[in-house]
């Protein structure tokens, strides 16, 4: 269980997160949605232990998060950065050497599903294929928490659709909590079980997608707009 307790984060003069109090349950596929600069990436990096709170506490199963929480969290960054000297296969091998929970067989299975040539140098891949490698590296880890910051960015709509459909088969929701940020909310909406709305560093709501559909009769995008209007 991930817990944010009175968490704020300031950068110079900018406030990235503001008094966040939220508890994220286990075993759910959760969408983190909000406009650009709303604090989504900072929120994700805090769970990964790559950013520390200025105030408050972030814990996983009541243990404070640090950089070394990487043994419990798989993190896919929004950045298109990689070790350019490695081939895809070597990148997989490097990750397998660093993470005890890394499932090499599963990584190759995902790469094959996404039709990525494992012999190619990562720097010679298209942006879309590099995005697929990042997804394979993240989903191949057998960890309780998977964070995916804009995993569909740079992928064309046809590929996005196939990856979204494939995502579920590579995640074990009995054991894993998955948090995804994306601007293509509509495309991942069928997968999501919960959604967190964030704006200007404030978490506006954490809601069951089923409840949003049944109680409010809304899609996530409309629900988000409603949250934003209520906040304004």
């Amino acid at each position: 269980m991930i817990t944010f307790e009175n968490v704020s984060k300031r950068y110079l003069t900018k406030r990235a997160l503001s008094d966040v109090n939220v508890t994220i349950p286990e075993g759910k596929l959760i969408g983190l949605v909000g406009s650009n600069g709303s604090g989504k990436s900072t929120f994700m990096k805090m769970i990964a232990g790559l950013v520390g709170p200025t105030e408050g506490n972030v814990t996983i199963d009541e243990v404070p998060v640090t950089r070394r929480t990487a043994d419990k969290v798989a993190y896919l960054s929004e950045l298109d950065e990689y070790y350019s000297f490695y081939s895809v296969k070597e990148t997989i091998s490097f990750f397998a050497s660093q993470f005890a929970d890394f499932n090499t067989e599963k990584a190759f299975e995902i790469l094959d599903f996404m039709e990525v040539d494992r012999e190619q140098k990562v720097k010679h891949l298209s942006k879309g294929n590099r995005g697929r490698v990042k997804i394979a590296l993240t989903l191949a880890r057998d960890v309780p928490i998977i964070l995916m910051d804009e995993p569909l960015s740079g992928l064309d709509p046809m590929v996005r659709d196939s990856i979204v459909k494939g995502l579920l088969s590579f995640i074990d929701l009995e054991k894993q909590t998955v948090i995804i940020t994306t601007h293509e909310v509509a495309e991942i909406e069928p997968l999501l079980e919960m959604v967190i709305a964030i704006r200007n560093g404030k978490v506006l709501a954490l809601e069951d997608v089923e409840t949003i559909r049944e109680r409010d009769g809304m899609r996530i995008v409309d629900w988000l707009k409603k949250q934003y209007q209520a906040e304004a």
């Binding site: 950089r67 990487a70 993190y75 960054s77 950065e81 990689y82 005890a100």
Partner: peptide, 11 residues
């Protein structure tokens, strides 16, 4: 230039 890649590591 890719700190997240280097630091996202349990070592």
């Amino acid at each position: 230039r890719k700190l997240h890649l280097w630091l996202h590591n349990p070592q």
